[in-house]
C-alpha cells in the first residue's frame, strides 16, 4: 500500500481537504476475489433457497426449505420429546402426582398454557374469575363448589357442569324460590342468609325455620354446603354472585345456573390431568385423604 504522497507510482483522486489529498491506491486483489466469491454465493443461494418474491408466493428454491416447515419440524420434535412425559402423565394416578416432582412440574407448566388457551376466557388469566363479572369461580381461594381434591377437580374439568354434551356432567339445580315462597318470606330468608357469613346460627329464628324447611336439604343444617351436590357453603366469606341484598334476592328468587363445557371432549386425557394439576396448585387445592 502506498502511503506517501511523493510516491509517483499512484496519483491522487483529486480530492483535497485543507491540503490533505486522497491517494488513489489500488484495492488488494484478494478483496476483488472476495467480492466475486460473495456474488457466486449469492447465485447459489438464489438457486437453493427461497429468494424472489412473486405476487402471491416466492420462488421455492431446489432444497425446498421454508421457515414454516422448519417450525413444523421443531414442534414435531418437541412433541416427540414430550411423548414419554405425556403418556406417563396420562397413566399416573393424580393423587400421587405431586410426589413425582419432575412429572408434576411438567404437568403444572403444561396446565398453565392450557389454562391460558382454554380457561382464561371465563376464569381470568390470573384464575381469579372474570374481572367485572359474577358467577365465574375464583380458582385461587379454598372454596370449592364441586370439591377441591385433585381428582374432583379433574372430574369437573373432564365432564363440565350442567352441559348437554356429556352425560356425566356435574348437575344440580336449585329451585327458583320466587315461585314457591312469598315475597316477605324471601326477604326474611335473604337477611338470614346474609347473616350466616358472620357466624349466625343457621336454624335460629324465623329465617332459620325457612332455611331448615327449604334450604338445609342441599346446603346442610350447618349451611356449610355439599360438594357432592354442588351446593355452595353459605357460612363462609365467599359469594360467587355477590352478598348484597339485591344479588342474594335474585339468587333465591330465580336460582343460578352456571355452566362449564366438558373439556374431556375437547382435550386429551393427559391435558385434562395437566389442567387439574395446575388448578390444584393455585392455592386452594385440598389434599387427597389417605384411606
Amino acid at each position: 500500500m502506498t502511503t506517501h504522497k511523493d510516491d509517483k507510482k499512484v496519483g491522487t483522486t483529486g480530492h483535497n481537504w485543507d491540503g490533505i489529498e486522497e491517494l488513489n491506491n489500488p484495492l488488494p486483489r484478494w478483496w476483488l476475489w472476495t467480492l466475486y466469491a460473495t456474488i457466486a454465493w449469492g447465485v447459489v443461494y438464489v438457486i437453493l433457497y427461497p429468494a424472489w418474491p412473486l405476487v402471491n408466493s416466492a420462488t421455492g428454491g431446489v432444497l425446498g426449505w421454508s421457515t414454516r416447515s422448519e417450525v413444523a419440524a421443531e414442534i414435531a420434535a418437541v412433541d416427540a420429546a414430550q411423548a414419554g412425559l405425556r403418556s406417563e402423565l396420562e397413566a399416573t394416578d393424580l393423587a400421587v402426582l405431586a410426589a413425582n416432582e419432575p412429572l408434576h412440574r411438567f404437568a403444572v407448566q403444561a396446565g398453565a398454557s392450557l389454562f391460558a388457551n382454554n380457561c382464561a376466557q371465563c376464569h381470568g388469566a390470573g384464575a381469579a374469575g372474570a374481572p367485572g363479572a359474577k358467577g365465574y369461580p375464583n380458582l385461587l381461594d379454598d372454596d370449592w363448589l364441586w370439591g377441591g381434591q385433585i381428582e374432583e377437580i379433574a372430574v369437573t374439568i373432564r365432564h363440565g357442569i350442567r352441559n348437554e354434551d356429556d352425560p356425566d356432567a356435574r348437575y344440580s339445580e336449585m329451585p327458583a324460590f320466587g315461585d314457591i315462597l312469598e315475597r316477605a318470606e324471601i326477604d326474611t330468608l335473604v337477611t338470614h342468609v346474609q347473616s350466616l357469613s358472620d357466624g349466625a346460627d343457621p336454624l335460629a329464628g324465623e329465617g332459620g325455620q325457612l332455611f331448615a324447611d327449604n334450604c338445609a336439604a342441599c346446603h346442610g343444617e350447618d349451611a356449610k354446603g355439599n360438594t357432592d351436590l354442588g351446593a355452595p357453603n353459605l357460612s363462609d366469606a365467599i359469594w360467587l354472585y355477590g352478598s348484597d341484598t339485591e344479588s342474594v334476592t335474585t339468587t333465591i328468587r330465580n336460582a343460578r345456573y352456571g355452566v362449564m363445557p366438558a373439556w374431556g371432549l375437547m382435550l386429551d386425557e393427559a391435558e385434562v390431568q395437566a389442567l387439574a394439576a395446575y388448578v390444584h396448585q393455585l392455592g386452594g387445592g385440598e389434599p387427597t385423604p389417605v384411606d
Binding site: 381469579a128 381461594d141 365467599i238
Partner: peptide, 18 residues
C-alpha cells in the same frame, strides 16, 4: 408480588397475597 389478582379472599375471610 402477583398482581393478577392483587389479593384473594379465602373462605374464612382471610386476605391472601401471593
Amino acid at each position: 408480588p402477583i398482581r393478577n389478582p392483587t389479593h384473594v379472599v379465602l373462605a374464612d375471610g382471610t386476605i391472601r397475597n401471593a
